[in-house]
Structure formats: C-alpha cells, structure tokens
Amino acid sequence: MGKKLVMAQKRGETRALCLGVAMVVCAVITYYILGTTVLPLYQKSVWTQESTCYLIETNIRDQEELEGKKVPQYPCLWVNVSAVGRWAVLYHTEDTRDQNQQCSYIPGSLDNYQTARADVEKVRAKFHEHRVFYCFSTTRENESSVLYRRLYGPQTLLFSLFWPTFLLTGGLLVIAMVKVNQSLSILAAQK
C-alpha cells in the first residue's frame, strides 16, 4: 500500500511539474510574440500628448464629392478640430489615418452602403453632441492631425502583458509548490 502511494505521488508530482513548466514556456513564448508585435507599435507611437479638441466642422464625404481622387465606395466622416492652438484633422485611430487620409472615421461594415451611412451619421451626431473632447496629438511642429483614440497606448500594453504575467506567476508557483512538497516528503522520510 505504501509503495503504491509513493508511486502515485511521483506521478502526480511529475504531472504538476510538467504543467508548471508548460505554463512558464507558454508565458515566455507569449512575451516574445508581444515583444515583437505590440511593443514596437507602442514605442513607435508618436501620439503621446493628450489635448483638448474643439469641434469646428464635420462633413460626410461620398464617392461623388471626391471626383478625381481614388477613394473607396463608402461614406466617410471628415472632422476638423482645433487642438493645441491650431487647426487639425481628427482621425479615429492610427489605422484610420493609414487606411485613408481623406477620412476621419471609416464605418465598420462596408458591405451595405445604407448601414455604413447610418453608422457615419450616428458618429457625426455624437461629435455634435459633445463638441469638446479629449484627443491625442504629437509633439511634432508640422503635424496637422490628431487622434481620437490610441490603439497602442499604455493601457493596451498593460492589458496585453497581464495574462502572460499571470501565466508565468502561476507556473512558477506550481513548480515551487511541487519542490516544497518534495523536500517536505524527503524530510518526513528521513525521520
């Protein structure tokens, strides 16, 4: 009976150690992936200065209004604001600015024109409701654009690092508990 109990304990300890090591390895892999994807985007972001934006005008641009320029087949919202003492174009996020510099806001669903138009109208109405809001600007002198929301801010970085840290801590705790249990078993067997 005692030999079976010892063998069962060894199997359990081995499984627990494997679990702990797997958790630590997964956390390290996740840290590597985050370090090569999210961290460089956070470091390259120049939109660090929080400012107060005052709405100047909003305009919905359709395909017909932008003739001669290459634009997609969806309505887009163009927002002008006053921020940091100068006129600026408001972009929803960094990606919006990269996708189409003629649009401040690009609707989420582009399949149906009427749905996209309703989405743009809703966002436009919210801007007219709240004419003063916080936005993010850069410290560059010649930059004439600001962001409504940062994709790669400190909150995103902390949220991305929370679960790998939790996984690493849990794995190290499992390994430590198994090692403490093994040392206590050895002490008990010696007495």
Rank of each mutant, 00 (worst) to 15 (best):
G2D: 12
K3T: 12
K3R: 14
K4R: 15
V6E: 13
M7V: 10
A8L: 11
Q9P: 00
Q9C: 11
K10F: 11
K10G: 11
E13I: 02
T14H: 03
R15D: 06
A16M: 14
A16S: 15
L19H: 02
G20W: 09
V21C: 04
A22G: 14
C26A: 15
V28M: 15
V28E: 12
V28K: 12
T30E: 11
T30M: 06
Y31H: 08
Y31T: 07
Y32I: 11
L34Y: 05
L34T: 05
G35K: 03
T36R: 12
V38M: 06
L39I: 13
L39Y: 15
P40F: 03
P40G: 04
L41P: 00
S45I: 03
S45D: 15
T48K: 15
E50H: 05
S51K: 14
S51V: 10
C53V: 06
L55E: 00
L55T: 00
I56K: 02
T58L: 00
R61Y: 10
R61D: 04
E65F: 01
E65A: 14
E65N: 07
L66D: 00
K70F: 09
P72M: 10
Y74I: 15
P75S: 01
P75F: 02
P75Q: 01
C76Q: 15
N80Y: 02
V81T: 08
V81K: 13
A83E: 05
A83V: 11
G85W: 00
G85L: 01
W87D: 08
A88M: 11
L90H: 09
H92W: 09
H92N: 12
T93F: 01
T93L: 02
T93V: 03
E94K: 12
T96S: 06
T96V: 04
R97E: 07
N100S: 07
Q102A: 15
C103T: 10
C103A: 08
I106W: 05
P107A: 06
L110A: 04
D111C: 07
N112M: 04
N112V: 13
Q114L: 07
T115H: 04
R117D: 12
R117K: 12
V120T: 09
V120M: 01
E121V: 02
V123F: 00
E129I: 00
H130C: 02
H130V: 02
H130S: 07
R131H: 01
F133D: 04
F133M: 07
Y134R: 15
S137E: 14
T138N: 08
T138P: 04
R140V: 07
R140N: 10
E141R: 09
E143T: 14
V146L: 01
L147S: 03
L151E: 10
Y152S: 01
Y152F: 15
G153V: 02
P154Q: 12
P154A: 10
Q155V: 11
Q155E: 13
L158H: 03
S160I: 00
S160H: 03
S160Q: 06
L161P: 02
F162I: 01
P164C: 04
T165V: 03
F166I: 10
F166T: 07
L167T: 13
L168H: 09
L168R: 06
L168K: 05
T169K: 03
T169R: 02
G170R: 10
L172Q: 06
L173P: 01
L173C: 13
A176Q: 10
V178S: 11
K179C: 11
V180S: 09
N181Y: 00
S183C: 04
S183H: 06
L187V: 07
A188E: 09
A189E: 09
A189Y: 05
Q190A: 13
